[in-house]
Amino acid sequence: MKNDDRMIRAFMQDHKQEVEDIYFSRKVMQQLPPIPRSKEWIVIPFAALGTLLAWLLGSDTPIKVETVQMPDNFNIYYLIAAVAVIPFVVLTMYCIKEKKIQLL
């Protein structure tokens, strides 16, 4: 069996040929599509948004009591509205960056 092994290896190595490139790699490089860009970064702002909302709206939790000092006469609805606008701002920025929206 060991002899078979050596014989087959020798036979295969006898027939092992280096294939000349001859424009193959150039053709491949010309055919490469643009690499799909990762959109995972979107998770980060949304996670941050969720954390912020949880922090702000968890009105009855001890965390808020201890860490958030609301200024006098501060209307919480302004803050909620501002936070709610964030996803739209991020989405607009993303579309501009990806040239899905043309400013000029």
């Binding site: 280096e18 294939v19 790699s25 491949v28």
Partner: peptide, 20 residues
């Protein structure tokens, strides 16, 4: 970096074995 030259190195290195 989306560097196609880097990928070109890999294509040239492995084209022979893959085509064979």
């Amino acid at each position: 970096l989306g560097d196609t030259t880097a990928f070109d190195h890999l294509v040239r290195k492995y084209q022979s074995s893959i085509r064979r």
